[in-house]
């Protein structure tokens, strides 16, 4: 049983590292999704089945999908990969590694001496439900207000007269098709290729 935990944990960590180092953004997203699924398995191992399900459905299923949609809309392609390659130098990892190291030391220091293992069973969804409707009722309401705010904000930010741009975008793609003579237009074909 514990083996599954370690494997899932390893998958989560490895795929996160891979996500951080990918050049192509869609690859990174996909690796992130894998990482989230790994964490969901870990949750299930801990007996928190409700959160495991929620992780898969909401996090990996909705939030990540939103990410993928937006990335696709931005039409990021080879030029961006080039940019990423320039940025992802080894030297760039120094700061984050130091900060992460400090945090790790803090966490280890905090959980030192805590020897108790996992108790039997886990927390049932029913318990969580009772907690949600009981003491954390206000939190639920606030979370819904937050989601409403996020909704309105996203709507407002995203609103614009999109007709002209979309039309121009489509027209560019048509041009691209006509120029290359192929039906499939590779992403980034409507922008000049990056030099140097």
């Amino acid at each position: 049983m514990e083996l599954a935990f370690y494997i899932a944990g390893a998958v989560a960590v490895v795929s996160t590292v891979l996500m951080l180092t990918r050049l192509h953004i869609v690859h990174a997203l996909l690796y992130l999704i894998v990482s989230l699924l790994g964490v969901a398995v870990v949750f299930y191992m801990l007996g928190a089945s409700l959160v495991a399900a929620l992780e898969v459905i909401v996090y990996a299923g909705a939030i990540m999908v939103l990410f993928v949609f937006v990335v696709m809309m931005l039409n990021l392609g080879a030029p961006e990969a080039e940019m990423e390659k320039d940025w992802l130098t080894p030297g760039i990892w120094v700061g984050p590694v130091i900060l992460a190291g400090v945090l790790t030391i803090e966490v280890l220091y905090l959980v030192r001496g805590s020897t108790a293992g996992l108790g039997a069973g886990g927390v049932e969804p029913k318990q969580v439900g009772i907690a949600l409707f009981g003491p954390y009722l206000i939190g639920v309401e606030l979370a819904s207000v937050l989601l409403l705010a996020g909704l309105v904000g996203a709507y407002h930010l995203g609103y614009r007269k999109i007709e002209k741009r979309e039309i121009r975008h489509v027209a560019d793609i048509d041009e691209g098709r006509a120029a290359t003579g192929r039906d499939l237009v590779l992403p980034g074909a409507d922008r000049p290729a990056r030099t140097a």
Partner: peptide, 8 residues
């Protein structure tokens, strides 16, 4: 159960 509520 508080932890899972927090996660929610």
């Amino acid at each position: 159960a508080d932890a899972q509520v927090m996660f929610l």
